[in-house]
Design a protein around this nucleic acid. Structure first.
Length: 438
RNA sequence: GCGGAUGUAGCUCAGGGGUAGAGCGCCUGACUGUGGCUCAGGAAGUCGCGGGUUCGAGACCCGUCAUCCGCCCCA
């Protein structure tokens, strides 16, 4: 038999999956719109050079490249790529269309991205990101609003317990410098540090040593982190480090009174992988998922990489499938999402009734019902069983008697009752019955 | 990219060298204008794929692919 699974790391979404995904997307959109963000969509495919060099070495490796076509095919070179995230395409859009866009541009974008990563729990090769970004301002109001919007979306989806970890790239740099770690080791040190919540302080200490960080530097680094955690003065920070700390204070002040306030948690060990971040960085976590539900930060230099014109920017990205994994496991979806393809199914006793079924279905649709016509004159029991199996609450029965009189018998499957109406009145009767059962 | 586990009927799984199994689902009938309950019957699997060992392989060996769990990284 031919293989029928989708390609590795890719998934089919069956009707129930689509309804769940759309439910989450609708909630997130509603919240983002409430903060004045506007929708944006960009192509699945970007020019390869647009993406290269924006995500760090590891990121570059994971980009899905598209080989040249036609005459260029033989060269084996790639010139296009599937988008790896929504942030770099946004920066390209802002650089390209800056004259048409407002000075302060707030946009959201919910679209799939592709990464040639190894699939794992909550990790796929095609997945949706729900991004919100604001460009054109360096104010801490931006960070605070992004955190507030994300927190609102989480709360509205039904998450009560979650944290938004907060840190600052320049604070990290300053801290590493103050600890005597040379710049060439900064990347390695940040990777080790970022794992602290997973492998513990001792694990980080070991990994730092493996990566060539001197023991006294590591000691100094841990001391600085400890001081930051305790909100105590940190020795040896340079000016940018001090400014970064002040920036974090300002963000927290602005977030007061929002849903984010209670969830914000300063975490000096948070580093985040993407190389384009320049300021505050954020990450949303819940207890029962090892990775993050989403993350973001400030990237003031990214637009400049395309246009030469520096436009400050800051954004946040929620991972749709991460949210879905947790919501599925916890059973957080509203009962109204249960899949019922129709409100009523029209069934006939013989093929001569089918044209009448079509006509009656049309009347019912005009009345506002979702109507499925059973297409074959199967045994009536089989037809009713199909309707019951699909969760369709009503079956409209058309036999010779009903057709002769212009009637239709409406059977309520749950109540095990049935009533005959005139065909023109049946739709209204079913609507009424649907309302009563809630 | 590395380590571990698992691939048997539509689904969940049992069988660990000698005739391919169960539960659920599906189909038919009891019940020729009515679903769920009950009863009787039925269909369905080259046991992930390729090689090897053996008189004989679903089982043992090698390879491969897929899935899951860790690591790495990330949404």
């Amino acid at each position: 038999m031919a293989r029928t699974e989708p390609a590795r790391g890719m998934r089919d979404f069956l009707p129930e999956d689509v309804r769940r995904r759309e439910h989450v997307i609708v909630v997130i959109k509603r919240v983002y719109e409430r903060y004045g963000f506007e929708p944006l969509e960009t192509p699945a495919v970007e020019n390869l050079e647009t993406l290269l060099g924006k995500y760090g070495d590891e990121g570059n490796q994971l980009i899905y490249k598209i080989l040249k076509r036609g005459e260029g095919e033989a060269s084996g070179e790639a010139d296009l790529a599937l988008r790896y995230d929504l942030t770099v395409p946004l920066a390209r859009v802002v650089a390209h269309h800056h004259a048409k866009l407002p000075r302060l541009f707030k946009r959201y974008q919910i679209q799939p991205v592709w990464r040639a990563d190894r699939p794992a729990r909550g990790r796929f090769r095609e997945f949706y990101q729900c991004d919100v970004d604001a460009l054109g301002s360096t104010s801490p109001v931006i960070e605070a609003e992004l955190c507030a919007a994300v927190a609102d979306a989480m709360v509205e989806l039904g998450f009560a317990e979650f944290s938004i970890r907060l840190n600052h790239r320049q604070l990290l740099t300053s801290m590493l410098n103050a600890s005597g770690i040379t710049e060439t080791l900064h990347g390695a040190a940040l990777v080790a540090l970022d794992k602290e919540d997973k492998i513990g302080v001792d694990g980080v200490r070991q990994e730092l040593a493996q990566r060539g960080v001197l023991p006294e530097s590591a000691r100094s680094l841990f001391a600085a982190i400890g001081a930051l955690r305790d909100r105590a003065p940190v020795s040896g920070l340079d000016e940018t480090g001090v400014a970064a700390l002040a920036n974090l204070d300002a963000i927290e002040t602005m977030a007061k009174g929002t849903q984010a306030e209670a969830r914000l948690r300063r975490d000096p060990s948070l580093a985040r992988g993407l190389s384009y971040y320049t300021g505050a960085i954020m990450e949303v976590n819940v207890a029962d998922l090892a990775g993050s539900l989403g993350g973001g930060g400030r990237y003031d230099n990214l637009v400049g990489m395309f246009s030469g014109q520096q436009i400050p920017a800051c954004g946040f990205s929620l991972g749709l499938e991460r949210i879905l994994v947790v919501m599925s496991e916890r059973g957080m979806f509203p009962a109204s999402l249960a899949t019922t393809p129709a409100d009523v199914m029209v069934a006939v006793f013989d093929a001569a009734g089918l044209p009448h079924a079509m006509r009656v279905a049309g009347q019912m649709r005009e009345a506002g019902l979702r109507v499925l016509v059973y297409p074959d004159a199967d045994k009536i029991g089989k037809q009713i069983k199909y309707a019951d199996g699909r969760g369709i609450p009503f079956v409209a029965l058309l036999g010779a008697d009903e057709i002769a009189k212009g009637d239709v018998t409406v059977k309520n499957l749950a109540a095990q009752s049935q009533q005959t109406h005139s065909q023109s009145a049946a739709g209204a009767a079913i609507l009424e019955a649907l309302k009563n059962r809630g």
